[in-house]
Simulated assay, not measured.
Amino acid sequence: MHDRIAADYLGRLSALAVRSLGRVLAQGYLVNSRTTSATIWPGHKPVLVAPPALDRSRFIVEPVRPEVTAPVRRVVMVGRISPWKGQHVFLEAFEQVFADTDVEAYVVGGALFGEREYEAELHRTASAGRCAGRIHFTGHLDDVRHHQLSADVLVHASVVPEPFGLVVSEGMAAGCAVIATTPGGPAEVITDGRDGLLVPCGDVDAMVAALQELKADPELAQRLRTAGQRSVRRYDATVQAAWVQPWLHAVAHRVAPARPATSWSDVAIP
């Protein structure tokens, strides 16, 4: 399960249908976060939390991002353009913090599923504000690594709880200082103040405060980047495979999986 099975995410009838089918058809549930796990109806069937794996080698480039403090120059938000993803929150906060600077923002992603009007409204907001000319929209991209690797700060701004938020762990792997929203999957990835910053969903003022903090404190931003790259080692595909394989083997052979000795959040960082 890679999505929260909840009415505010899938719709009431779809959520009910998926939960019911799982009760009938599934032998076990492999879920991407505790946030997702809380929305299913597993009954007595086994459940394992295993977040999406990272191929961290895709985020290692030369020259390596320097371990020096520097002012924020580029802020990026990556994701499908949709009201629940919160691009409007990001743009409003960016305008308040960086209006009198030359910092650039990149909104990476395109609109799908009939959300073109929201995308158009974002463009109108950006062009009418004080940061006009410094907010860039890339449209849909098949590979967003260039923008992650070239950014100083990556913002995740969902206004409802995100099931996991792969862009959060990818941004950390790419060496960005990451701001993400809570509750939801990102709060299971980030320890606030240690390897990223967490703000409440839909809270523009909190997003402003987080951006302002990184703008004013380059040393904090660098500490978050360094700690974030270390934290996401636990999401490496080799670590994930060792975590998931015994569970899958047990479920496939219809035997009770051994209960993991630790929760996913306590998995040792290699």
Rank of each mutant, 00 (worst) to 15 (best):
A6F: 03
V239A: 15
R124W: 07
T39W: 04
P51R: 05
G175D: 00
I40C: 05
V68P: 01
A50Y: 09
Q222R: 15
V68F: 08
S37R: 13
H156G: 00
E95N: 06
H88R: 14
T226Y: 01
E121S: 11
F59M: 00
R12N: 10
V167Q: 05
P257Q: 10
R116V: 11
C131L: 13
A17E: 06
K215V: 04
L211V: 05
R116F: 10
A210I: 04
T101F: 04
V208I: 09
A132M: 02
V255W: 07
D195H: 12
A26Y: 11
F94G: 07
L10Y: 09
D55W: 01
V159P: 02
R34S: 12
A157V: 02
G43N: 04
G22Q: 01
H140C: 02
P260N: 02
V239M: 14
S263I: 11
A50N: 11
G110W: 05
Q96E: 15
V75S: 04
L211E: 03
G109Q: 06
F113R: 14
Q96N: 15
A252G: 14
R58W: 12
E219V: 10
A15D: 08
V167Y: 05
G139R: 08
V107C: 12
W243Q: 09
R194T: 15
V267P: 01
A258S: 14
P183G: 08
M77H: 04
V18M: 12
T36E: 12
V97Y: 09
A151W: 04
R234I: 07
A258W: 04
L21A: 13
A26K: 08
T35A: 12
Y235A: 11
R259P: 07
T191G: 03
M207A: 00
A132P: 02
S150D: 12
P270L: 02
A7I: 06
G196K: 01
H146Q: 10
Q87G: 02
V75P: 07
D143H: 09
P71H: 01
G193K: 09
R254A: 13
S33C: 01
R12Y: 14
L122G: 00
V155M: 07
L122M: 06
V168H: 15
I269L: 06
H123Q: 08
E162D: 10
D142M: 04
A15G: 14
V199P: 14
V89D: 03
E115R: 08
E162N: 04
E104W: 00
V47P: 03
H249S: 15
E104V: 09
A252I: 12
G185S: 09
F94I: 06
H253C: 02
A99H: 06
W264C: 04
A15Q: 09
V199R: 14
I40P: 03
M1W: 13
P42D: 03
H2A: 12
A210F: 05
V61T: 05
R230H: 06
E162W: 07
C201R: 09
P186G: 00
Q229C: 07
R134N: 09
V49D: 09
G110F: 03
K45C: 02
V47S: 03
C176K: 03
V31Q: 08
L197E: 08
T101V: 05
D143Q: 09
R233C: 13
D3E: 15
V251L: 07
P161W: 03
N32G: 03
L16E: 15
A6Q: 03
G79I: 06
W264N: 10
V76A: 10
P51W: 04
V68T: 14
E115L: 03
A241R: 15
H147K: 07
G109K: 01
